[in-house]
Design a protein around this nucleic acid. Structure first.
Lengths: 192, 192
DNA sequence: ATCCCTTTTTGACATAGGTCAAAGGTAAAT
DNA sequence: ATTTACCTTTGACCTATGTCAAAAAGGGAT
């Protein structure tokens, strides 16, 4: 078994991208609320307007889409040190296309839209932080799109292992298969 | 034939998202350079580090990936009023995975990485603008991902028509087909 | 109008991956 | 240690889409 990163502090993460002063850091983190959430808790329902953005200090979650035929399609996995949300629902305050749930007992730091907007207007640096995080997410979504659009089932699985090394072995096969746009049976066969 | 929007001024676009003052607007636009580029001009090559971000005032372009077998896969279309680039190459200054080319005679406003960074640090509002544009792009990429991941070939074509109404009828079928992750033949049959 | 060149459509066939159904595994709970 | 519930694997068959190749349709230029 690999040694995994299991914790990532919010302040640490903020500092890893931008040189916030201790005072700024304190003010910013005070706008977040620490939440202990147990496994399999639904954070957002499809159709609901997302009220909070979550930072994952420990644990993990996923967003998924529910098709008309009742099948779940995993849209994204959120590991330690990432922001978790139904992005467009939160930022555009529009109905979410996805469900968001924890997959393990987790420690999350949540912030409301009002509070993050306060931070964005108060701190130029925070706005910069927001842009950097957005671009990073954009890059990752584009990578997934590439994997799905022009790679074979086998190559897509390799992408998954590279992108989510410490998630791939912790979640049910079916979640990964639907994330990669294939059936569980196909993924099972690919892994040999 | 539909009446199409064929021009979008950079200042207009800036103002549509953020209330810049006339002085700010003047300073910001002065960091861009107007370029008249003729059809089928290559703006970025695969492997190159993107030097400029382009705003499309008139015309259109696309980014595409070249597979080992020599096949082109369109990654994105850029229409009037959009920023065009190999996003991660430009912002992370990393080698581009894509080629970027114009598909029609175009009027573009280009800005260098240095200049946009100057604007980002000079104007908090500009940073906000950057974040808004990034989130919008992120939302659009996610929409495409959804289309490719859980829709049939026919539904994907409908998505294309909705997302790029004034592009769908102006470019070769093969470009659209590869953008949608299918062959030209399949797309041809879908359109009946 | 005709020629040339590009783009689109059509046809015949092949195949990766999906579907459905059943059998094995694994792990927590009693 | 059994039970129960949920995962994962395997098998047989099917289908949407890909591949390859050729024919048809446009659209400029002369």
């Amino acid at each position: 078994m690999l040694l995994l990163i299991t914790y990532m502090n919010l302040s640490e993460f903020l500092l890893s991208l931008i040189a916030f002063s201790p005072a700024e850091l304190l003010d910013i983190t005070s706008h977040f609320e620490k939440e202990n959430i147990s496994k399999d808790t639904m954070l957002i329902e499809q159709g609901e307007i997302s009220k909070k953005l979550y930072f994952v200090e420990k644990g993990m979650g996923r967003s998924y889409y529910l098709k008309e035929d009742g099948k779940e399609v995993t849209q994204w996995f959120f590991g330690v040190g990432k922001f978790m949300s139904s992005v467009d629902s939160f930022f555009q305050q529009s109905p979410s296309l996805y469900y968001l749930e924890t997959l393990e007992d987790s420690i999350l730091y949540s912030i409301s839209k009002e509070n993050i907007d306060i931070l964005f207007s108060k701190y130029h640096k925070m706005e910069q932080f927001g842009r950097l995080v957005s671009i990073e997410m954009l890059t990752k979504v584009v990578n997934k799109l590439n994997a799905i659009q022009f790679q074979t089932a086998r190559e897509r699985y390799d992408y998954m292992l590279a992108e989510f090394p410490n998630i791939a072995y912790r979640v049910p096969l079916g979640h990964i298969a639907s994330y990669l746009g294939m059936t569980q049976e196909t993924l099972s066969r690919i892994r040999r």
